[in-house]
């Protein structure tokens, strides 16, 4: 059986465009506020949502997502809130996954975590610091709960290793566009097209590009060669910079609309 995420990529391939994937940490700006952001994503035309599990030691994240995670953690956000946000998204009919560092999964219980994803309508989990060498227990839990396991690859990943890592991926392969942490950049790295081309040699699975995308033009550029465009920090910046929640949500909706146009203009 395919997950909603897999079905999404079948659909967008049929429409000859890329999917827009938006990231928001659970509990940010508040637990209720997070639900409003999810609604704004959907209203703006986002195709799939990543719910972040805020973590105390996020080594893959830049200052923006760190600030959001700190804010969520200071309000006591944990697994319960993550699954609640996930359910909120999937109840709206949008494919959703959780993005989390490994320790919260291990602490929650590996099998239990995978099952909770299924139970809340989720399609899978992105694990940015789980290497395939350490993934045996996770793989079997993922298989049992019939969800997608999504790993992140980087420009420094060599071809032999790309083949091995992507063979563990389902749903999509998360291609980090550059060597660095999350955050907006003035331009998307020129290494991204090359990385996506190398990934395509080793797998049929969809490829989504993340790190550094914040504008319609950038989304358009990435959509030319990738199946999905992932945006996180740009949305969080809108929320952090807005004087009040209402205007923040309006800006999120507006940015989502622009990006949704971008992913349709790439080809």
């Amino acid at each position: 059986m395919s997950t909603p995420l897999e079905n999404l990529f079948t659909t967008v391939r049929g429409e000859n465009r890329a999917a827009l994937i938006a990231y928001i940490p659970a509990g940010f700006p508040t637990q209720e506020g997070c639900k409003k952001v999810i609604q704004a994503f959907v209203d703006g035309g986002v195709d799939a949502i990543e719910i972040g599990f805020p973590y105390s030691d996020p080594v893959m994240d830049g200052p923006t997502i760190q600030a959001a995670a700190d804010q969520a953690l200071s309000q006591g956000t944990g697994a319960k809130e993550v699954f609640e946000a996930l359910k909120y998204a999937t109840d709206l009919g949008v494919p959703a996954v959780v993005m989390t560092y490994w320790n919260p999964i291990e602490k929650y219980g590996v099998e239990k975590f995978a099952q909770a994803i299924t139970d809340n309508g989720g399609s899978g989990v992105i694990t940015p610091d789980l290497t395939i060498e350490e993934s045996a227990a996770w793989e079997s839990a993922v298989e049992q709960s019939e969800i997608n396991s999504i790993y992140v690859v980087a420009p420094s990943t060599n071809d032999a290793r790309l083949e091995r890592v992507t063979s563990h991926c389902s749903g999509f392969v998360y291609a980090a566009s550059l060597m660095g942490v999350t955050g907006t950049r003035t331009s998307v790295s020129s290494g991204a097209p090359d990385l996506v081309a190398r990934i395509r040699k080793s797998t049929e699975t969809a490829v989504a590009v993340g790190l550094g995308v914040s504008t319609r033009e950038q989304a358009k550029g990435v959509a030319a060669y990738a199946d999905g465009v992932i945006v996180g920090s740009a949305f969080i910046n809108k929320l952090l910079e807005s004087p009040d929640e209402e205007s923040g949500l309006a800006q999120v909706r507006q940015l989502a609309k622009e990006l949704a146009q971008g992913v349709r203009e790439g080809r």
């Binding site: 080594v59 893959m60 490994w102 940015p128 610091d129 789980l130 290497t131 060498e133 350490e134 790993y151 992140v152 690859v153 980087a154 420009p155 420094s156 990943t157 060599n158 290793r161 890592v165 980090a176 060597m179």
Partner: peptide
């Protein structure tokens, strides 16, 4: 030999660091 001490050790890092 595999970078482990019993169940401990290993590598839990972003893929970007594996090469290094």
């Amino acid at each position: 030999i595999a970078g482990h001490f019993g169940p401990y050790g290993g590598r839990f890092v972003p893929e970007a660091l594996i090469g290094a």
